[in-house]
Structure formats: structure tokens, C-alpha cells
Design a protein around this nucleic acid. Structure first.
Ligand SMILES: [Mn+2]
Ligand SMILES: [Mn+2]
Ligand SMILES: [Zn+2]
Ligand SMILES: [Zn+2]
Lengths: 154, 154
DNA sequence: ACACAACTGAAAACGGTTTTCACTTTCAGA
DNA sequence: TCTGAAAGTGAAAACCGTTTTCAGTTGTGT
């Protein structure tokens, strides 16, 4: 995932904040991860570039980077606090239940579902949180599952 | 919400488990709540019928009742562990961002979205977790918001 | 050089959840 | 009816992820 460091540095600067070495390390750690990562995972990864990094700073940075929109919070039924780079477009995520790898997709036509919800509940819907899970291509191949059709599920 | 105690007792019995006074109190506490409830909220409510109830038991019971499908786990971007009675039909939930009240709805035509995800990611999708949020009718009226159209959002 | 705000890590505090443990209840079988 | 095993329980302790505190450092503008 992209995550242009210069652009992020700019966004921070506009608020009088800086992209420090520690923050940069955190940013890279998330950017390089092939799946969503927990704060400790970020900590471990980022420490290899920045050994003096503290876990406190990781938490603070993940929070900060989410605020400015550089990172996206991902949380499924299980782990509730994980992060991934925020893609350019609004998207949803699919988590592999076997290996945890996360992929983004951009389809966002929730119109029908949202309409039904409005009709049935009377709520005014302003946000939706959707997360699919299943098996990534790699894990699917390893376990020899048939590929193709989409399951119904939960 | 219904939550037929006898039926649940039966399901438990089939596993050699019992619907004790404490479990019954927990069950009722969730059933009577107008919104999703956290473990402590259940604890407080259930204690009025069963004063000697311990928080440990509440946790154990919520877990157990979720396992047998009597309760549904609800978690939004914020609070991650809350419970509500599982309706008969498969459904999704809408949480009011103002008051926390939860409503269920049954539309589940995720076909198009899932297809798009499969196409874009190559994952085999087996489950989906969808949670909408917005404003319930009561809160909407109180804040005088226009009603009707459904928002896009995250 | 100076002042000031941003930033940091270690340690402590915190809060929700799980585990441990000694004890009670329930129930099936002798 | 006794008896033993398994289910169930609450208090207390342990656990674990997160947040707060605090004293010190780094960077920036003047
Ligand atoms: Mn969650
Ligand atoms: Mn569904
Ligand atoms: Zn996988
Ligand atoms: Zn409301």
C-alpha cells in the first residue's frame, strides 16, 4: 500500500505536528504488513528500525495516524483493534480466517440493504461497517478447497 | 424479544447443562434490555432478581448463551463486547449512535457486494459481519433531523 | 543562545476479562 | 436414601491490553 510519507508529513505539519523517526517507523510497519496488524505487532516490526521505540508511542501514533486518515481501523468479530493502511478509495475489507491476511475491495453498493434497514427499523442510517471473512487464495489452495461461488454465511 | 426459556433450557439439557437461576437471570436481563448490553450492565440488571449473582458467572453465561445461539454478539466501532437476544431469523443490526438502542433487520441480500469482493480479492467468502449505525427514530425526532434518505458513510 | 511546544519512554495506573480455587448444587446410579 | 461424579458458583487473584503520568529530550522559531 502506498502511504506517501511526504504527504503525511505535510498533513501533520499543517497541524504543527511532525513525522518523527518513531512515527515513520510505525507508519512503515503498517504499510509493509501483508495483513492488518495489532499494536504489538507494529511495535515488534517497527522496533527493528527504531530499537528505542516505546509501546506507548506506538499507541499514540496509531491513534494519530488514524485521525488524519492515513490508517484505517480494522476490527472483526475477534480482534478488535488492528490497523491497516487506508487505501485511496473508500473500501471494505476481507479477512482470511486462516492466515489473517486482509484485502480491500471497493464495491460499496449497500443501497438495497440500507433501504431495507431504514424501512424495517425507522433509523436514519449514516454509517456502515462491513467486514467479510473467508479464505484467501493462498490458504484456499493449500487446503484444496473448491474456488468460485460466494458463500452466504453469518 | 422472545427468547423462550423452555426452549433454551432444552438446548442446554441436550448438552448436559442446566438453566440455573443465575443463568435465567442473565437471560432475562438481556431479553428485557431495549438496546444491546455490556456484561456489567447485565450484571447490574440481573442482580436485582438474583442478588448473589457474581460477575464471573455473567461472563460465563453470556459466552455460553452465545454459543448455543440464544444471544447475539454486537459490536460497533467503539464498544466491542455487547449482547442482545438473537432474533429468530438471521438478521443484522443497526445501532443508534446517540442512545445505543439496537434494532434488528432481516434483509440480507449481500449477493452483489460479496460477488464484487470475490472478484476483486479472490477470497472465498464464507461470512459477513455487517453493522449499520445512525440515529433511531426517537433520537432523530429529538434533534429534529430530516428523515428518509439513507446515508452512505464508512 | 533561548524559550516554548512537540515528543518521547519507563513506570504506574487502569479496567475489562479470564483463571484459580474452594465450595455448593444437582442428578444419576447403587 | 446414601453416594459419587459432574455441573455450577462467587471471591479473589492473575492477566493483559490500553491509558495516564511524569520527568526528561528533541526540534523549531526567534
Ligand atoms: Mn469490535
Ligand atoms: Mn447476513
Ligand atoms: Zn489466508
Ligand atoms: Zn437513539
Amino acid at each position: 500500500m502506498a502511504l506517501d510519507a511526504d504527504e503525511i508529513a505535510g498533513t501533520l505539519a499543517a497541524r504543527g505536528l511532525r513525522l518523527t523517526r518513531q512515527r515513520h517507523a510505525v507508519l512503515d510497519a503498517v504499510a509493509e504488513a501483508s495483513s492488518s496488524v495489532s499494536p504489538v505487532q507494529v511495535f515488534d516490526a517497527a522496533r527493528e528500525r527504531c530499537p528505542e521505540l516505546g509501546l506507548t508511542t506506538v499507541y499514540r501514533t496509531l491513534e494519530l495516524l488514524s485521525e488524519i486518515g492515513a490508517l484505517r481501523r480494522v476490527h472483526g468479530p475477534d480482534h478488535c483493534e488492528a490497523f491497516m493502511p487506508a487505501g485511496a478509495a473508500h473500501g471494505h475489507t476481507v479477512v482470511c480466517s486462516a492466515c489473517g491476511r486482509v484485502a480491500e475491495f471497493t464495491e460499496c453498493d449497500m443501497g438495497a440493504v440500507v433501504d431495507a434497514a431504514v424501512l424495517q427499523t425507522g433509523y436514519r442510517i449514516t454509517e456502515h461497517f462491513l467486514q467479510l471473512s473467508g479464505e484467501c487464495p493462498t490458504c484456499g489452495a493449500r487446503t484444496g478447497q473448491a474456488r468460485g461461488a460466494a458463500g452466504g454465511g453469518a
